[in-house]
């Protein structure tokens, strides 16, 4: 059941490719002439409701994908080593039709639609990405979720010969994430196979990744090789590393500071050296859609 969510933007709102490719040169040229980034005429988000998509170049060059290194540029430099064809996803646990599904099997029959979502990283930067993908609920319905299942666990590929970052135990590999079943079934939750109308670049989680727009970016696990339905809350990578800093829910919440930094503000990537901080929205601006999932819960305790 696709199209259960409509954003008010379309492909026409996405910066055309020639414009974003030229943007850096324009910026460089203007900067050179005027000597000030403030005068480059760069459009900057005034608040977090702004859904102007991030430049493709920025969204594909500024990434966290620690399997390829911890520098923001490492994924774009190193992720090409990752083999994404063939690709298969193990779907197991409390499902009626467990098995190893090829990427083609996974997407077969799924309706790929575009979703323009905010992406808020726990590190306080944010983007707006036009994703192409299908609702996770559609996939879960197809494999048949058994009645006792309450959580969905995900796992990223961990292939040391193609992922230099795995040599360092920054977190426990493989990278793992999880959602409560109702979160996974929510119409906002998608499995993305593309962005900006093109297949996902490796550094953005090719060939298939999760996108949960009301949670911090690290919940949107990349390059998925396993999906497990379970009745217990699954261990997740950052939560295992430091539960105090990274909760299981990790809903975007400006009222709950990360122990080492405030989460009240964020900065849109691409705004240059003088980009302004903008207030972060509760549930990353998706409060209307998802607040009901957490009714009666203390979101500071269950962060």
């Amino acid at each position: 059941m696709a199209y259960r969510y409509r954003s008010d933007l379309t492909r026409d709102d996405v910066t055309p490719k020639d414009v974003y490719l030229n943007r850096r040169q324009i910026m460089a040229g203007a900067g050179a002439m005027m000597g000030a980034g403030l005068l480059t005429g760069e459009a900057r988000a005034q608040d977090a409701w702004d859904l102007t998509p991030t430049a493709y170049e920025d969204a594909t060059s500024y990434n966290n994908f620690y399997e390829f290194g911890t520098d923001k540029g490492d994924p774009a430099r190193n992720a090409r080593m990752m083999t994404t064809e063939p690709w298969s996803v193990v779907i197991d646990g409390m499902v009626d039709r467990p098995g190893t599904y090829s990427f083609e099997d996974v997407v077969a029959g799924m309706t790929i639609e575009e979703r323009i979502y905010r992406l808020r990283c726990v590190e306080r930067w944010s983007m707006v990405i036009p994703w192409n993908g299908f609702e996770l609920a559609d996939l879960l319905d197809r494999v048949g979720v058994q009645s006792g299942a309450r959580y969905v666990a995900f796992e990223t590929l961990a292939r040391p010969e193609e992922m230099p970052g795995l040599r360092v135990p920054i977190i426990e590999w493989p990278y793992r994430e999880g959602l409560r079943l109702d979160e996974a079934m929510h119409p906002l939750t998608i499995m993305a196979t593309g962005m900006y109308g093109e297949p996902l670049p490796n550094q953005n989680g090719a060939p298939i990744r999760l996108v949960v727009p009301w949670k911090y970016g690290y919940k949107s696990i990349k390059s998925i090789v396993r999906i497990t339905l379970t009745d217990e809350q699954p261990p997740t990578a950052w939560n295992t590393y430091s539960a105090r800093e990274y909760g299981f829910y990790s809903n975007v919440n400006p009222n709950r500071a990360h122990p080492r930094w405030s989460q009240e503000f964020e900065r849109r990537v691409g705004g240059g050296l003088f980009a302004r901080n903008i207030p972060t929205l509760m549930f990353n601006g998706y409060e209307e859609e998802v607040a009901a999932l957490y009714e009666g819960m203390d979101l500071i305790v269950n962060h």
Partner: peptide, 10 residues
């Protein structure tokens, strides 16, 4: 100032 430090220069 001129884009040489990547997408998040600050």
């Amino acid at each position: 100032l001129t884009g040489g430090l990547g997408a998040e220069p600050i």
